[in-house]
Design a protein around this nucleic acid. Structure first.
Lengths: 135, 135
DNA sequence: ATTTTAAACGCGACTGAGTTGCATCTGTAA
DNA sequence: TTACAGATGCAACTCAGTCGCGTTTAAAAT
């Protein structure tokens, strides 16, 4: 049932199901955009301690439930790691409203790489103006 | 003459040529890798005030002499913006020694983009193990 | 050469993100 | 139901980066 989606996600990653974690997962499920720490703190029903939130975000990230995005602002944002998006998916940053969202599709690079260099992951940030701001 | 390359670079960007700025440009010219604030502070011949350095880095960035790179560490790194590299060039981050360097070549994306979305710039960070560490 | 002035410098105080140590509480498994 | 690892909250802390302000200096004007 739909109210149990958070439970399924936490279970699937072997994470303990506390009330805070359930609400935190719900918050991510409700938002397609990446969330800053303050978006998260403001989005929870009660004001929670920041170390609790940061520790949960770290646990979620280590478990692969969410991923961290570092854009040019220097402030980390977090978004659900979705199965239908590749590991190397791109992120879109609106230079006007500063919204960050994940992009479907693939990124390919055509760069000179030395033989000894081992490429493991590609992270791409696409800057521009989002549909909302461009109206 | 070669000792005047810093002067040329500062002149070409309309930046005032102070002793600190000359040495700062020299430091960037000597390093192919991107430099963190502490790399820079340690690389200068005398210990300089951090606000002076930060303000110079900001001026250099605004003038297009250098560019800022935000990798997963959350700590900004700076590198010369070189003419032979495209604006949208990729950065390589070694997950072992944490060195950051610019990559020649181009990045292309194949992602779904809404009609209203206007893409302005693509920034890519390639993670892996560098040649030095992979020996 | 001297004066002028906008901009660079240094100092110190500050902000804000993120971390850590520790005592208490709670989810879960035995 | 109990036991315990791990989650929570609080407070103190670290560290990157910024800002205000008084002083100095590069470079243009005289």
């Amino acid at each position: 049932m739909s109210t149990e989606l958070q439970t399924q996600l936490l279970d699937s990653k072997g994470l303990k199901k506390t009330p805070i974690r359930r609400e935190l997962v719900s918050l991510f499920l409700q938002n397609s955009n990446a969330l800053s720490f303050h978006d998260i703190q403001d989005g929870m029903s009660s004001k929670l301690d920041k170390s609790t939130l940061y520790r949960n975000l770290t646990s979620f990230e280590e478990a692969g439930l969410i991923h961290k995005i570092n854009d040019h602002s220097g402030i980390a944002k977090f978004a659900l790691g979705q199965q239908d998006l590749s590991d190397d998916h791109a992120h879109f940053v609106c230079d006007n409203c500063e919204t960050v969202s994940c992009m479907e599709g693939s990124v390919s690079i055509d760069v000179k790489v030395d033989d000894k260099v081992h490429v493991k992951q590609i992270q791409t940030i696409v800057h521009g103006i989002c549909g909302n701001c461009n109206s």
